[in-house]
Design a binder for these strands. Structure first.
Lengths: 207, 207
DNA sequence: CCGCTAACAGTCATCATTGACTGTTAATCC
DNA sequence: GGATTAACAGTCAATGATGACTGTTAGCGG
């Protein structure tokens, strides 16, 4: 039955470990933090209890590993994304990252972190690294915009706004989301794009 | 032993009900959604299991009641707040509402709502009501700003940004928060306050 | 003042989750 | 090629949460 070729221990170990972490992330996306029990993970991964507890001695350890994995994936996604130049494309790309399953899973952990010091520490650490990277990549892509005196302010506000919008998305319609995206773009144009700031774009409001 | 004066049944009932809900909110603030078990609530409220289950037949019912209470309290807080006129005061007041224990508890429920249709429905309903009220009160206070073509856009973005900032607050320093508040104010001034938009205020950025 | 019902009090069975624990297989080292 | 150890497999006891269930008391209506 051992159809698979001989594998080294390190390979086997890494494979199951990755399998478990992937199952954890999937569970976080579908069932949330509370629903992500060690039993659920082991079912999804198709591994035994022994296997799971061999790699991660506790549920907390498993979640921390998931955090690391999530942020690493986010970083890779940023690197892999095609380079954009325009403001609108930048906003769209940024918003897309907030909608990926990775972001959903991470969000779930942010919620749990308030009452879990270990998780909070892990998230804070990874978040700093990600933020610095985003900053660098943004500077790299929008060489002209970065110099604008309003740049830091706009980036700060728009990213937070996206985070907030993502949060309430569970009860929000697509239309309401579209309105927000338009608002972010218009606001960014008004404050960063001097060429556009003169011609007043179409209204963005709406009930 | 019955030192207290005779009370009508309705009074007794309402009193314990309120006691239980308050305990629920407290628990949500301190221990989060996961930590808010029916046992924890009954301990905090100092009521028996029978009392708790008499008023709320399930944990879900209890949480929905907490949602209603939280939003009602938020509404009252808005009404009770002194009327403000300036942009800075408005931003400060708005941000304060995001920091109240009520908001923390509500936040905890927003997280849980993703995997709980009943809770999600309750939150959506109350959220609509609250949003409409905030809109009305804002219009009432800033009669001049409301007419500004950028008004809707700014309100949308700033409120979302606050929501997002509140979310990551668990790992954020006070300094970082102050930077954000400054950014919101400056941005609002730039886009709504035509008098201020000419003189370019001090930079708001910073690593 | 008496029967009735709402408002509790307290216990219990059931179930889910966790991590410890013991047993087994397969890779690696000498 | 035998010993050793990592990588699993599978079971179990302990814990904690939930809601059902039975018993008791106090207000209320007639």
């Amino acid at each position: 039955m051992t159809v698979a070729a001989r594998r080294t221990q390190a390979e086997r170990s890494a494979a199951t470990r990755a399998l478990i972490i992937r199952a954890t992330v999937d569970s976080l996306v579908e069932l949330g933090h509370a629903g992500t029990t060690t039993l659920e993970v082991q079912r999804r991964a198709g591994v035994s209890r022994g296997a799971l507890l061999h790699h991660f001695r506790s549920r907390a350890e498993l979640l921390v590993a998931a955090v690391d994995e999530l942020f690493a994936a986010q970083r890779e996604a940023f690197y892999a994304a095609p380079k954009r130049r325009g403001i609108d494309e930048g906003i769209d790309a940024l918003w897309r990252t907030f909608n990926s399953p990775l972001a959903v899973a991470a969000d779930e952990l942010w919620s749990a972190a308030r009452n879990d010091a270990e998780l909070r520490e892990a998230l804070a650490r990874q978040n700093r690294a990600l933020r610095d990277q985003v900053r660098d990549m943004a500077a790299e892509q929008w060489t002209d915009l970065v110099k604008h005196p309003n740049y830091e302010m706009v980036l700060l506000v728009v990213v937070d706004a996206m985070r907030g919008a993502a949060r309430a998305r569970v009860v929000r319609s697509d239309r309401a989301t579209a309105t927000r995206i338009a608002a972010w773009k218009r606001l960014t144009h008004l404050l960063l794009d001097d060429a556009t700031s003169k011609r007043d774009g179409s209204a963005v409001g709406g009930r």
